[in-house]
Design a protein around this nucleic acid. Structure first.
Lengths: 243, 243
DNA sequence: TGCGTTCAATGTGTATACACAATCGGGAAA
DNA sequence: TTTCCCGATTGTGTATACACATTGAACGCA
């Protein structure tokens, strides 16, 4: 039941999240349950379940009257969310280094990094699609490296926050030269993080993972700057209040 | 509606959480919604809402069949949860030190620490009740010190995890001598953290906040050791699998 | 004209009924 | 005796109806 088939609540969650991130609602717009239920073709019960999820994710919040409204963010909010993710990934990297990682896990990480190298050095420039896939895979691997269910869960939560995930700014700026350079730097940091984990250098692994998240912050700044001049296709960017 | 009066869902949440933490269910016991609904006198809809909350808190988890079961934890899980809290409180302390804190906030923190001193030096030994109150207040203050909604939310979540909160082991071992010493050490760390924040020493503030969380880890170990010989009254301890 | 009051409309919180999946037990066949 | 199958029971997912709160507007009164 919960395995192969998607429930109405799952559909409502994904549909509503996509709507919100795509900017279909105004900032702080009130979401009426009956109206949404009608629009999505999903009854209120599973819809409410989906909205509860988004409330806890932070995409929605309740106003004084108890209605759900779409949240909007400041630049500071996004920056802090990235900082939280970097901190938790740093924790995962340190724990992995301190507690040790199996040979199989290390081999898996190396395979991911090789694939990233290949995506960067493709014949026709950079294979962005492959880069996104393998970059996500590496960050997933890093979360798992600590082999701690608690850490895995918290990192997953931090990644779900809008615009704070490791792939949030990997679309929409493919043509930008500084962005291309940041991919190369990021991959070098990937290698360094893995090396530190492998050699048991906990403090180094943690510091590197934190600094690695700072790259996302730089890319965020560039995306914001570019928004002023051209339309971008970064999901969730519409939620950031321009100030 | 959402302000003054508690909803059925709120009641269900608090009742169910209390039941679980008090060990009313066996480890990994399946919770039937109709049975619980009958037991609590609350219909399934708000009950399901409460269960969704507990699922996201980690107190419950879904099995293959889609049923909710009470989670049980290993020592490692609790240790990691404390580590996550320490890491996030370290982040809050560092950000507070780096970004600065208002004079009013500093004064409020000093008042809390003075109250803690008073609780420790009470005429009739230590005033545990007051200590718990003000200790909680200081940790809440620390979360707020970064003045970041994101950080505040994540720390609140980390504190809600069973047995990982700053006050989780402040009950049930009042008579233990090493526990009394740990209170004095903790209060010294409180002062040091505040000092580091005040003087803008971000790295020191972070390191201190992390080490401060390690005290909880020591107290956890003592509580576990004592559980083998006597009954304790620490809520949630029943969820830890004895190994 | 400005303000307070009341009524209607909309919205949320809750209960409950129903459909379908999962699980458990007994019985039959090998 | 063991294993497989089938029915009954229990449980979850969903839809919907209803109660009450909230909101907005129109109307009357000062």
């Amino acid at each position: 039941m919960a395995k192969d088939r998607y429930s109405q609540a799952d559909r409502a969650l994904s549909a509503l999240r996509t709507l919100i991130l795509s900017g279909a609602f105004a900032r702080d717009e009130k979401l009426s349950e009956p109206a949404l239920s009608d629009r999505l073709g999903i009854s209120r019960t599973p819809l409410r379940e989906a909205m509860m999820h988004l409330l806890q994710e932070g995409l929605l919040h309740r106003d004084d009257g108890g209605s759900a409204r779409v949240s909007c963010y400041t630049m500071r909010d996004i920056i802090d969310a990235i900082e939280v993710r970097g901190t938790l990934e740093g924790l995962a990297a340190r724990l992995a280094a301190e507690r040790g990682v199996s040979a199989e896990a290390l081999a898996a990480a190396r395979a991911i990094l090789d694939a990233l190298d290949q995506a960067l050095g493709a014949a026709a420039g950079v294979d962005f699609r492959a880069y996104i896939v393998h970059n996500t895979a590496f960050h997933d691997w890093l979360a798992q490296a600590a082999a701690s269910p608690v850490v895995i869960r918290e990192i997953a939560r931090a990644k779900r926050m809008p615009l704070s995930g490791p792939g949030a700014f990997l679309t929409g700026q493919e043509g930008q030269r500084p962005f291309l350079q940041s991919l190369i730097i990021a991959q070098d940091q990937h290698r360094a993080i893995l090396d530190a984990i492998e050699t048991g250098e906990g403090a180094r692994a943690e510091a590197l993972a934190r600094e690695h998240a700072r790259l996302a912050r730089r890319n965020l700044q560039q995306a914001i700057d570019r928004r002023k001049t051209e339309a971008t296709t970064i999901p969730g960017l519409a939620l950031v209040s321009p100030n």
